[in-house]
Write a protein that binds this DNA or RNA. Structure first.
Lengths: 235, 235
DNA sequence: GCAAAAATATGATAAAATTCATGTTTTACA
DNA sequence: TGTAAAACATGAATTTTATCATATTTTTGC
């Protein structure tokens, strides 16, 4: 399933423009190119396991990934997603701690592995890149704080509504306004922090209330302002 | 209440050894010293407000601080604590976003304000310091992920037990094993993500079960292994 | 293409947690 | 030091959410 592919060259990689690597010099880019290795992952494959050590980061050149922790009762908690241009594994690498989460693909995905030495070289030699990493980490930390407050204070219905809006924002929609990520009800429950049955029930409530349209795993938000009101977002 | 105090010199500051500033060169230290301004804050004072911009960071030279967000129903959610040697405000500074949380003192506290330019100078010129910042941010991000999973998956009783253990670890105990931070029941509830009444009830349950001893706001954990079991921590 | 497995759906029940009410104790401060 | 305010405490009722049971539908692998 996981197979070596002809390495996509960074200088032609569409994902690069969206990534922390966007402003590297041509020399730096060919340096990264030379050190990296690219692989193709089928849907559902695990990329790395929580608790392990990691010796580099992965850059998503194509595809979608979920990052999750396994709670004490064996239940998965989705912490964040990564898509084209995003990097994963940098938290564990930079903290020199074991991986705090596992990563698995949500669809066919191409990843480039960039070794630790290469990343540290960029950090040390490119102040702009370094600052991008600091900015990425601190932005993520702010997002995590928001999630904490929401989990702690909002009821399930509001959290689900907000999750749908965030998924839409993160993965965007196709020409039919369908959110461009396919998640099982269980996976949605594992973002929201609730039981699968609750998600199923609430999604059909939202459907009845004409806030969304659902067809299998395709979700379309038909009334964004109303769903935003349900999510109780005002800021 | 907030008053200018004779600036503690960094080179004699006991908090420095515990902080990200621990390995600065003498020149760097006197440079920081020259740029900073120190202030004393009474108990309960707000240091900064969520949503505002910040133009530097605060280093805690003495005292204890809570960082919190205000949820939609006006309820406070405590995101983290800072104590001697810790810095606050760096997330907003480095992400160039507004402050994601407010900060308020939990007791009499002395803070040194270090301007943005000074921090950026250290980051740019001292690779070791820069790496400490990356490490701090990525460690915090891992901690936040843990909190997310716990909030999403654990019942209130387990979360409270774990919170008490974390408070003990963070603030340590005095010679009588009393946790060295005084929080109201409401504040504890605002860490755990529950109602104040639930905390009150569960604390007296824990007391009846001889897991803790409580006297006003003083909490002593008398049976750590048993409380750890209640918290359902195994890793 | 078909059987088995997994995912979705829905009702009923149970458990968890909050809210409300009310009383007591502690603290703040005029 | 007395008094008001805040914090703590506890019971009862209600709401929220999870769990369990059981269909039904969809997907997957041979």
């Amino acid at each position: 399933m996981k197979k070596r592919v002809e390495p996509t060259h960074c200088d032609t990689c569409g994902a690069r423009e969206k990534s922390v690597f966007c402003s590297l010099s041509p020399d730096e880019i060919s340096d990264v190119d030379a050190s990296k290795s690219c692989n193709f992952y089928a849907k559902g494959q695990v990329i790395f396991h929580e608790g392990n050590r990691i010796n580099g980061i992965y850059c998503v050149s194509k595809g979608k990934i979920k990052l999750f922790q396994i709670g004490n009762e064996g239940k998965e908690q989705i912490i964040r997603f990564a898509k084209e241009g995003d990097i994963i594994g940098y938290r564990a690498l930079l903290s020199e701690e074991p991986l705090s989460a596992s990563a698995a693909t949500l669809e066919e995905t191409s990843l480039c592995f960039i070794p630790k030495s290469q990343l540290l070289k960029l950090i040390a030699n490119n102040p702009n890149f370094n600052f991008k990493m600091l900015k990425l980490l601190s932005h993520e930390l702010g997002e995590a704080a928001k999630v904490i407050t929401e989990l702690a204070q909002k009821p399930v219905r509001e959290r689900l509504a907000e999750t749908l809006l965030i998924l839409r924002q993160t993965f965007e929609t196709d020409e039919n306004q369908v959110i461009q990520v396919k998640l099982s009800r269980e996976e949605i429950a594992n973002i929201v922090g609730t039981a699968t049955e609750s998600v199923i029930r609430l999604l059909s409530d939202f459907k009845k209330e004409k806030l969304i349209e659902v067809e299998g795993r395709s979700i379309k938000i038909v009334n964004i302002p109303a769903l935003t009101r349900v999510a109780n977002i005002f800021e």
